[in-house]
Design a protein around this nucleic acid. Structure first.
Lengths: 200, 200, 200, 200
DNA sequence: GATGAATGAGACTTCATTCAT
DNA sequence: TATGAATGAAGTCTCATTCAT
């Protein structure tokens, strides 16, 4: 393996810590995951953690940022590709990605919950969540337009329900063996049906 | 005021501790809430806490039991009263109760997450959740029957979606000012509409 | 030994911790002394420390209070007993007590220094120091009156110099083997001499 | 500006680090000041610090050396210039320099205290302190000679008292608004007066 | 010589739990 | 039963020091 430069090494450490933190928070929750766990699991010392992140809260927020950003990018990518032929296929792929990773989903729920508890986290979270929500609203609007359907309710409500099902399914998954995406499919089917009767 | 018997006093202490624990867990999460907080907030000492509950986990599970049980009772009560005239009214009352108390909703989410993390909690939780789910399935079946509608999907899926939206909305509430029950209404509306077209 | 009641036991623990803290701060300074050292040296666990004092700073301030208070009481006792016959004897006893305990003197200096660094300590310290200073001024005034001498400078300045020599000697002691009270004697001798020429 | 030679640059870095250390130790004490603080405040990295000083203790001792040396030089300069006309003026200038800089005074006290705590520091400190004390004794002897006065006590005691007041005043300054040099003036006045009655 | 990422010991503090009263 | 002092493990974070770049 090529020797890493100082900068590359720094970035790599940071990323490994973020990945480790994602696993730890998903597994044990924010309070339950210790900085020591996170660092050791990434193969570093506590000290390395603290030279990369100012605090436990800081890495949590950084993680939040990374995750929300990637969710936003995913939605944005879908908007670019929307056309009636491949739409359901694209959506399916996305939903599978969203629900396929159990840890990711639990992490999302944990992020939500924790962000609501800490005032310092809430500020950062709020902004990210708004950006994601806006993006989702835009996407849904585009989809209805392409399909030449009239939405059966304000698009914001549809987006919120979408998010609620996504988070809620993550919480429930585990008890029941069924695929977590099932509720989402049901919701989408009914949404299309409910819209179709009023189209054009 | 009449003197409480020893037994009555014990029950009262227990209930006050449970109520205090519900507040504490909702506010700070399972890890974030301390036994001391819970006891003091209820007006007792740590010692009193441990005279009534074997451990922090024990009170958590007891709380879980109480909550799930009351959810089950609420659904059962609705089944008994279902008739086409008052159905929506009954449902509305129930949903308001479910989403009106912000703390209750956050607690529910915390219970879910925590139950999934601790092996010792998981066992007890599974059973409770299954009983609630069964009850909900029964209720939905009765409703569709009374309304003479055919459900647009397996009732289990509908029930799961119902639960997912309930939990997911609780997580999201707080960012957005809108009433947390909005997603649930949207889902119910579409559900009725989707069923109606195939009825009888 | 008689069994200690709960309250007695609590007081005893507190006092042992205070004594241990005095030793530790004198030996290693405020920053250098660890809560662990203090607790263990007193024969308790860290936990016991924290159920008796809210923080390291808190025990420091408590110590400050105890020490200043005892200094004040000592001065007050001298005022009550002042009469020309035993004055020098009383003074000598007091000075010996003040300088006899090396640790005590170093602790005093450490207290001064640390109180100046921490804003939260400064407030508490200021008040205590003022009370001690006032008491000393009163004492010196009484002494001059009894001796029918006129002080050669404002009494406040004399008191301040007195305190400065006391703290300064403590710092210096250790290098030089000489008795730490020597500077103080020199100062007192000259003070009496300088006053005498103007008396009556 | 002329290019600095490598040697000059090294010396400059060293001096800036020493100055930064003086500020840091005065402000936060030996334990409270971090190597990082010192380095950054001087505009360098931790690495630069360790290229110039072997350890935190090493820079502390170097600082001690520099300060004591400059105190010694100041006294020596006064000896050279002593003559009855300008004596008080020279003294005044010196005392102002000694007490004018609050940080310097606090640093002096911190140096004293810390030197007494660490065995490795103590050795180096003893020697320096002895040299300063000797120099001061010599100076006082010369002064009494020039003034044709007989000291009212062993000169060593006078020197020690002088040092004690100097350090003690530094500790006290800050509470009281009065100029820190006041005690010293009082002592000097009384010293002259006490000597005068026995002169020649 | 200078840099700063990483180490690892150790600091302060919290907290579930025990147990003598 | 209830109390709360005490324990001890564990948690977050700091910092003197090392070393590859």
């Amino acid at each position: 393996m090529a020797r890493l430069s100082r900068e590359e090494s720094r970035v790599r450490t940071r990323e490994m810590l973020l990945a480790s933190a994602a696993r730890a928070f998903a597994r044990a929750g924010y309070s339950g995951a210790s900085v020591d766990d996170i660092a050791e699991d990434a193969g570093f010392s506590k000290g390395a953690f603290y030279s990369n992140f100012a605090s436990k809260e800081a890495i949590f927020l950084a993680l939040l940022e990374v995750r929300k950003q990637s969710e936003i990018m995913a939605v944005r990518a879908m908007i670019a590709e929307v056309d009636s032929d491949k739409l359901m296929e694209t959506l399916t792929t996305w939903l599978d990605a969203l629900h396929g990773d159990r840890d990711f989903a639990l992490l999302a729920a944990e992020l939500e919950l924790q962000a609501r508890r800490s005032e310092s986290l809430a500020a950062g979270y709020e902004a990210l969540q708004k950006r994601f929500s806006d993006e989702l609203v835009a996407f849904i609007a585009v989809v209805f337009e392409r399909l030449e359907l009239t939405p059966p309710a304000p698009i914001k409500d549809i987006a919120d329900t979408f998010i609620a099902i996504s988070n809620g399914s993550a919480l429930a998954a585990g008890h029941q063996n069924q695929h977590a995406g099932r509720s989402m499919r049901l919701f989408l089917d009914m949404l299309i049906k409910a819209s179709a009767t009023r189209a054009r």
